[in-house]
Amino acid sequence: MPFTNDQLQRYSRHIILQEVGAKGQRKLCEAKVLIIGAGGLGAPAALYLAAAGIGTIGIADADEVDLSNLQRQVIHTTPDVGKAKVLSAQETMNRINPEVTVKTYRTFVMADNIMELIADYDFILDGTDNFPAKFLINDACVLAGKPFSHAGIIRFKGQLMTYVPGQGPCYRCVFREPPPPDAVPTCKQAGVIGAMGGVIGSLQAMEAIKYILGKGDLLTGYLLTYDALKMDFRKIRLPRRDTCAVCGKSPTILAPFDYAQAVCELG
């Protein structure tokens, strides 16, 4: 179907770009992206992906909006406190762009539902806040052959990497196993500058958009780290681990599984 004048106007700044054009915008409008976690990272990513006209955006989160979320989770507003995060996110996204379909999954993402959840999507964004979830998303995406963007933020620091099947290392190549519960501080205990979610979540959205367009170089084989206090961005080259338990030569992880959650992250 040809673009309407309204669509041409809405997406004009995209279509004007040589790397996008009508063909690229059509790809965006037909793409399906899943965001796991409607929080510090997921909020800005969801806003930009909706604005970009990504045809179907899935958003998975079991929580309700809490007052302490609003310092960084810019998709939710004060009147949304107490509302399911996925519904609050859906409302904001559809106010920005009524053309996109927002599918909500009000659930914890676990080993027994993740494969079904990601099956329909072209690209997955990890916006979760704990290691068991980050390893689960990595394993499921590697097993299902799905590209995804991993990210983490804490205090004044953030990092991200992109996994594309058959290219470069996966998250488990780098970090192998989650640290023991409570061994490494999380945002709840250590704090995070709200704008960090904006910086890193927006970069995740950018990776998804580049992947869909098929343009430019993705952050595969690199970990991008951002230290806001030193105002330092670094691209660290990542080796591939032939012995990786999920993407290596003789994988031992053949199905997704759940790690125990740190006590403070429960409930």
Binding site: G37, A38, G39, G40, L41, G42, D61, D63, Q73, D126, G127, T128, D129, N130, F131, K134, A151, G152, I153, I154, K157, G158, Q159, V174, F175, P179, V184, P185, T186, C187, A190, V192, G197, L223, I236, R237, L238
Partner: peptide
């Protein structure tokens, strides 16, 4: 030499 740190936050 490069160091890679666990960064678990995100929500």
């Amino acid at each position: 030499v490069e160091f890679m740190y666990f960064m678990g936050g995100g929500r």
